[in-house]
Simulated assay, not measured.
Amino acid sequence: MKKGVLLVNLGSPDSPEPKDVKKYLGEFLMDERVIDIPLAARTLLVKGIILKTRPKASAAAYKKIWWDEGSPLIVLSERLQNKIQKQVDVPVALAMRYGSMTIKKGLQELVDKGVDEVLLFPLYPQFAMATTETITVLVEELRQQYFPNLKIESVPAFYNKPDYIEVLSNSIKNHLQGKNYEHLLFSYHGVPERHIRKSDVTKSHCKIDGSCCATPSKAHEYCYRHQCYEVTRLVAKKLEFEADMYSTSFQSRLGFDPWLLPYTDRTIERLAKQGVKNMAIVTPAFVSDCLETLEEIAMEGQEIFHEMGGKDFTTVPCLNDDDAFVNLLSKWITKWIKTPVEIS
């Protein structure tokens, strides 16, 4: 069998113009694993309310961070793909869950090159319904409908793999070298609390009560909240941080249902009010810088911090196409090529 790899990231509008942003947001928000309410209610919410107002504001945000080469997330993902391709001996394709770089196109690209065994590589360190799961579910639907002869194996969440923690920790350490910061905030993308409970395979462990994420359980294999806090814990241990030097928060909430706490914007505000003058922030839920990191954190977060009396606000870039990250993913892929066992 000829093997190949499909890297999958979130996606992006084709341009920062409102019409393209509206099309992208429509596809994204109508995903039943992103807004997990009945179809009729989701349609009313998304098409009847959100898409009438949000595209214009989101387009303005995209315009702030758009590069000459295109969407930062797309450009950075392509750089990652190209670097990995140079290090492995099988075809490496790139696709996005939403937008014009579809997963179907990515799979077809590999099939056209003679591939009949695919390593599906969702570019998310942590598992979540709205990221990893929606990718794997769609890939299986496409396989059954269009590629029935393809054998597909998916890379599991790698949030706690020692090699990943080392690469992430070194990246943080290198980018903060010489920086005078008092506090490092680990900011992860937020999800509704109900997503955590829905992903609980035990149907009883995840109570989001402050202790369940630290109590060993089978539920942790699919618990986004636990996996985020575990990344923070492992990196803090690796970098030998004292307990008061760091904290964890969650960004990007939508609607009025409870989302994971504490919120990033309010945490930034609280730290500044408490007298923190120099802070740094890292976003380990993303491997590629995007709207949420470049605009929501680096611009809006900094503005909040300064308004509340803060002075220096340092953002740590995502791993992007960092050579150490490229080497790590290439090592995992090469191991799969030689022996298809769980990546470790």
Rank of each mutant, 00 (worst) to 15 (best):
K277P: 06
V276S: 02
V137P: 00
T132D: 09
H189Q: 08
R42G: 03
P18L: 11
Y159D: 10
S12I: 13
M129E: 07
A130P: 05
T232R: 13
F325K: 11
M299A: 01
Y224M: 12
T215C: 11
I196T: 02
Y146T: 05
V118N: 03
S211F: 12
V137L: 11
I333E: 09
C228H: 03
D265E: 08
K113C: 09
L7W: 11
V34N: 14
K2S: 06
R54C: 12
K273W: 11
M279V: 15
K104Q: 11
I152D: 10
H195N: 07
L150Y: 12
L150V: 14
T334N: 15
L176A: 09
Y62N: 01
R194V: 14
F325C: 12
G114P: 13
Q144I: 08
L260R: 02
G106H: 08
I304A: 00
D200A: 01
D289P: 05
N174T: 11
T315L: 12
M245W: 15
V231L: 14
N9W: 06
F250Y: 03
R42L: 12
E296T: 01
G210L: 01
L142H: 10
K113S: 08
T132L: 04
Q274D: 13
A298Q: 01
E300A: 00
M299R: 00
Q85P: 10
I152T: 10
L6H: 05
Q227T: 09
A41W: 02
S58G: 13
K64T: 03
C318S: 13
K207S: 09
A60I: 02
I172K: 14
L239A: 10
Q177R: 11
N174Y: 05
G106T: 10
K86V: 07
N174C: 02
E221S: 03
C213I: 06
V316P: 11
Y263R: 00
S12A: 14
R266C: 01
E269W: 00
L44I: 09
R143I: 11
K161R: 10
A272P: 13
H189F: 10
I35W: 10
P216C: 14
Q85S: 15
A40Y: 04
D20G: 10
P340F: 05
L319T: 03
R233N: 14
F121G: 08
W67V: 11
T43R: 05
Q85L: 12
S12N: 13
E140W: 00
V137R: 07
F28E: 06
K2E: 04
E242C: 07
P122W: 02
I268M: 01
V341K: 08
F250K: 00
L120K: 05
W67E: 13
M30W: 08
P91E: 06
G11L: 13
P72A: 06
A41G: 01
I135V: 15
Q85T: 09
Q145A: 15
K22Y: 07
D89K: 10
T132G: 08
P72G: 07
P18D: 09
M129R: 14
L239W: 07
D257E: 13
P192T: 09
K64P: 03
R197E: 04
P258G: 04
Q227A: 08
P258A: 01
K238Y: 13
L39R: 07
V276R: 08
